[in-house]
Design a protein around this nucleic acid. Structure first.
Lengths: 226, 226
DNA sequence: ATATAAATTTAGATTAATCTAAAAATTTAT
DNA sequence: ATAAATTTTTAGATTAATCTAAATTTATAT
């Protein structure tokens, strides 16, 4: 039996729902729809309805039938803790255990549910208090706060604009391997050489090399403009 | 959905039963009784009967009604893997995250179920291939083999015998804290100064200090005689 | 404004793991 | 060797999480 921050018991399934609601509802500030939760968790809408009623009973979400759900403060704290753990474990896997950024997600999905405050605080210390995970996503602090940096999609940069790659939107293994192949990594300096109106592709420069990327790629790379 | 070494799905509950059977049945070589399994897992005998039927169906144990169960080769491999992970995580917690030996058990109980071969192999490497956990218990190797060293309980030593503390039988927090208090740790040199027939207590020397220990303590400390 | 489509909820079943109480088998003690 | 005690199994229920299919509500389009 495991108990959360508030001294209440919480199941692994409940944690996963709360996390999904957090991420779908822009960190818990807007309503997440029943169907979007079902899609995110690869389950059925009817299962979601059942579960959100239970979460509402326990005080993790506010729910009005047909209106979707929004996290309460209590729910937000749970979600931020799970996300914090997920991202810290990802850093651990890459920094200490030689994993690459396309291999860490599934393992972090398991590790994020381990219950121990001391464990996560010591892990944070071991990793020297990282602020971002290997995909550039910010790590919530102990109280659940996220400091967000100004970043934009590469797609939005104008010709001749320069910036640094600070994150990926799509974290699928396929996309990350594509980036590896073309030596695009967090920290890479990117210059937009030209944009093609026809298909929204662009030519960019990374270090010495020049490559042509599709609109799909440009829409999944976060850039800090300079 | 997680799949084991044999490509079959295995639940967390099944893993816990298999581990208990392994440890009760002296690493799976003798039969574990229904009641002993129930005690170990803090559940009821009727629940155990249900589960061992399922484990038998899946080929992890051999079961004849009223005869208890013994692990199959398949079951033994699963169990040894779980124990290997448990003990490696314990080493990690103590060596890398500043935990003391009385704090690691509950967290390792959670971590032992994380599924990733690469994770556990890399952890093994990070820890420089440890052979024993913080309580002196041997860590099974990748193929599930345990090399056991010759050790005896302090209780069995004669007067004037010398040895080194190599493990604890009781791993409860209470006992481990007792040992900390009297500076008894793995690696401590111990000499039996005298034995008291009346209550089976003994006087031992550790480093510069001399202490009186009860039969209970003597029966829970493993010693390598010298 | 009303019909149609889409989203959501309800009703009723199913599965895994558990429980209690009763029945059956085995072990122990005289 | 048989009665008593203990252990184990069976039978029937319960809970959490899920599902399908049907009903209901909300949104969309003409």
């Amino acid at each position: 039996m495991w108990f959360n921050y508030f001294g209440a018991m919480i199941t692994l399934t409940e944690e996963n729902y709360i996390k999904a609601i957090y991420q779908l509802g822009k960190y818990g500030t807007v309503n997440a729809s029943t169907n979007s939760i079902a899609d995110a968790l690869e389950t059925k809408a009817s299962s979601v309805t059942d579960m959100i009623k239970k979460l509402a009973d326990k005080g993790y979400v506010n729910y009005k039938p047909y209106q979707g759900v929004k996290l309460t403060q209590k729910g937000k704290k749970i979600a931020a803790d799970v996300v914090r753990k997920h991202r810290l474990w990802e850093v651990f896997l890459v920094e200490k255990l030689n994993f690459s950024w396309d291999e860490v997600h599934d393992i972090a999905e398991q590790l994020e549910h381990i219950k121990s405050e001391k464990l996560i605080n010591e892990l944070d210390k071991l990793l020297d208090y990282p602020t971002h995970d290997p995909h550039g996503d910010p790590i919530p602090d102990k109280s659940g706060d996220i400091k967000k940096t100004d970043k934009t999609l590469l797609f939005n940069l104008d010709e001749n604009a320069k910036g640094i790659c600070v994150g990926v939107k799509d974290t699928s293994s396929a996309f990350l391997k594509y980036l590896d192949k073309y030596n695009i990594a967090l920290g890479s300096k990117i210059t937009v050489l030209s944009k093609e109106a026809f298909d929204d592709s662009m030519v960019i420069q990374i270090g010495e090399t020049t490559i042509n990327i599709s609109q799909v790629v440009a829409n999944n790379l976060f850039i800090k403009e300079q």
